[in-house]
């Protein structure tokens, strides 16, 4: 098999397996998996910025929340339908990322991390400040009537799973296509050596801004879908924790790999799920996982596998 066919086959196989899992898994795990797939889309967006372009952002919760609230608020206040609301979420995530990027991308490295962190914190506080409109800390429940897409009721298990899978598959295909495209190579070039790519005639600011906007669209889509599928929109999704989570997923699964975010989300979700079964100290595991990963496996699981032989892994 040629490289391209092998890669597409691998990813199609994953989608097929996830589809089959719907009929095999008990409802509890199927719901978990739907959640993981949506979070994996978020992490994939994060990975496009961090893993491929080398932009370590600590503010992605803002894009996630932008998508979520852009979806939820029109539904709540004006009774907008689910489909248009989802689109609004996508646009909002990208627009937010574009606005932040215009300012934050003037900095690099540590400053970039702090600036994105500060913007995200300001975003979170803004949601709290306009608590009358946004529901503040308590959030609000998305109206069941709006949770319909093409006539399917997203609040019931099977359509919800399929919707999550469809989003995941679309996001993964988009990601795969993007990183194998010429533009994807330029993104990696920015990560590896910005000066040299500048000398080759690429404008680092524009490439990074574009990558961040795409990343924001992913995060916004994930946020909107999360609110739509699980019926709840709240300020807690804008906290710094939701900026850390995708980073954790990506680090665990492997930064700069297409499947890494999903693998990381899957493992981390069940690590927390299982440990919280017998101890309430799950935060400890999140912290320990971060420290151990950065210490011993900065490339993550798939990154290590790719290094040890499977070089064709995208």
């Amino acid at each position: 098999m040629s490289g391209g066919a092998r890669i597409w086959a691998l990813h199609l196989a994953l989608v097929a397996m996830l589809f089959a899992a719907l009929f095999v898994l008990p409802t509890y795990h199927a719901t978990n998996l739907a959640r993981i797939m949506v979070l994996a889309v978020f992490a994939m967006g994060y990975n496009l910025a961090f893993g491929y372009t080398g932009l370590l952002s600590l503010g992605h919760a803002m894009f996630f929340a932008a998508g979520m609230f852009a979806m939820g608020l029109p539904v709540w206040h004006w009774g907008l339908g689910g489909g248009p609301a989802l689109l609004l979420g996508l646009v909002a995530g990208g627009a937010m990322a574009g606005a932040v990027g215009l300012l934050a991308l003037r900095t690099a490295g540590v400053s970039f991390m702090i600036v994105t962190l500060m913007f995200a914190q300001a975003g979170y506080l803004t949601i709290l400040y306009f608590g009358q409109v946004t529901g503040g800390d308590e959030g609000f429940v998305v109206d069941a009537a709006a949770r319909r897409l093409f006539g399917f009721d997203l609040s019931s298990d099977v359509p919800r799973y399929l919707a999550a899978l469809a989003l995941f598959a679309a996001a993964m295909a988009g990601c795969l296509w993007l990183v194998r495209s010429p533009f994807g190579r330029v993104m990696v070039a920015m990560r590896e050596n910005e000066e040299r790519s500048r000398m080759l005639g690429y404008d680092p600011f524009r490439v990074k801004l574009a990558a961040l906007v795409i990343s924001g669209v992913y995060a916004g889509a994930a946020g909107a879908a999360y609110g739509l599928l699980f019926g709840y929109v709240g300020g807690s999704f804008a906290t710094i924790q939701y900026s850390i989570l995708p980073m954790l997923y990506v680090l665990l699964g492997g930064a700069g790999t297409v499947l890494g975010p999903f693998l990381g989300a899957l493992l981390m979700f069940y690590l927390i799920d299982i440990t919280s079964g017998f101890t309430s100290a799950w935060l400890f595991f999140v912290g320990a996982a971060l420290v151990l990963l950065i210490l011993f496996a900065p490339k993550g699981i798939l990154g290590t596998i790719r290094e040890r032989g499977a070089r064709w892994l995208p």
């Binding site: 600590l58 540590v110 680090l251 400890f284 999140v286 912290g287 971060l290 420290v291």
Partner: peptide, 18 residues
């Protein structure tokens, strides 16, 4: 610099949980 930020975030969670 970037790795230490990630690591200190991890430490933050560990201390908080402790």
């Amino acid at each position: 610099p970037e790795a230490t930020i990630v690591a200190t975030i991890g430490l933050l969670y560990i201390f908080q949980q402790a």
